[in-house]
Structure formats: C-alpha cells, structure tokens
C-alpha cells in the first residue's frame, strides 16, 4: 500500500491518490482544448498559465506544483 506523493493519502499501488489522479487526467485532457485555443502552446507554458488562474481547482494546482518542482522550474 503506497501513499499519494502529494497529499499522503492511501493510494493503493499507484503514485497518486484517486483525487490527484483525476486532477492529472483533467489537466491532460484540458491541454487539448487549450492547444486548439492557443497556437503553439507548450505543455510547460500551459500548466504555468493554468496554475495562475484563480478558478483552477486546488487538486489541479497541487498536481501542477508537483510537476513544476520535478522539472526544477
């Protein structure tokens, strides 16, 4: 049994708990909409913009911060 690397909740065999896993899935699927909306939008720039928006959900922001910290940005 593993703990979610973001919040420490039990996450079964996965790296992320169900909430942060869903947040990551949503973040990835919204990238498609953003890519069509904004030409040549790189993933890094996309998550930076999403993270700055007030409307972005808490778990999504936590996932973004985790990705950014891994990338060293």
């Amino acid at each position: 049994m593993r703990d979610c690397k973001i919040c420490g909740r039990k996450s079964g065999d996965e790296e992320l708990c169900e909430y942060h896993q869903s947040a990551l899935t949503n973040l990835k699927s919204a990238y498609e909409i953003w890519s069509e909306a904004e030409e040549h939008l790189a993933w890094e720039e996309y998550i930076k913009q999403v993270n700055e928006l007030e409307e972005t959900g808490r778990w999504v922001k936590e996932i973004i911060e985790n990705i950014m910290s891994q990338n060293g940005s």
């Binding site: 909306a37 999403v50 959900g57």
Partner: peptide, 12 residues
Amino acid sequence: ERLINLFVPTPF
C-alpha cells in the same frame, strides 16, 4: 467540492 477541486478552466 470535488468538482471544484478538479476543475481546469479553459479559455474563450
């Protein structure tokens, strides 16, 4: 709250 926490805004 779950839906709010998982929300990703999209531009228009």
